[in-house]
């Protein structure tokens, strides 16, 4: 809905906050999703995502959401689906070249970005859309990747210690363990 979209951009700061909370919940749920199987939760989560984001942002389910880098203005609503800023055809008053009744998605995006703490992310150069991800849940993908990265950073620290003290490790592996550790010992900042 066009008006909801304008609302989302005006309140980009609030949506940024909500998104950050949602992301930590999704990351916390990673073990649950992993146990059920990510492919089995994919469809229900994608359905929820499609409904919520469709209502708020006119989401097109590209599957690789960049809303937090685009001032909460979905770039897939640009008729040229530009992911990196406005084209040169923006009309006076900031209206779209192709759909003159609509505010340019990227004029809104820069506006929204100024209301966000992480607004400078709009300056990052975004890669082209991977069309094979269309229709899939980007919430799941993001939280899954971030959870994996958190795990890896924990692993990196452990293997670094193990490598730095190879003799000790050879004689007493428990001082620099590489074997899986109990959940309470893994990534203390992830526990919170």
């Amino acid at each position: 809905m066009y008006r909801a979209r304008l609302f989302a951009v005006r309140h980009a700061g609030a949506f940024e906050w909500i998104y950050a909370r949602l992301e930590s919940v999704m990351i916390a749920l990673d073990p649950v999703f992993a146990r059920i199987g990510y492919d089995r939760v994919e469809r229900p989560v994608a359905l929820v995502e499609r409904t919520a984001k469709g209502l708020l942002f006119d989401c097109r389910m590209c599957g690789q959401c960049v809303l937090s880098s685009t001032g909460m203005s979905c770039p897939m609503n640009c008729p040229k689906q530009l992911r990196n800023g406005p084209c040169g055809g923006v009309r006076p008053g900031g209206y779209c070249e192709v759909k003159p009744w609509m505010q340019c998605v990227w004029v809104l995006a820069w506006d929204g970005a100024t209301r966000m703490q992480g607004g400078q992310k709009i300056r990052d150069v975004q890669p082209p859309v991977d069309r094979s991800l269309e229709g899939s849940s980007s919430w799941l993908r993001v939280s899954r990747e971030k959870a994996a990265r958190l795990r890896e950073s924990g692993d990196a620290r452990r293997t670094a210690v193990a490598r730095a003290f190879p003799d000790a490790r050879a004689h007493e592996p428990a001082v620099a363990p590489l074997a899986p550790e109990p959940p309470s010992a893994v990534n203390p900042e992830g526990r919170r």
Partner: peptide
Amino acid sequence: ENPCVPPYEWRPERLAK
């Protein structure tokens, strides 16, 4: 680059990008 159309204030930023 099109310096003479909106969003004027963001055109230089877009150029930087």
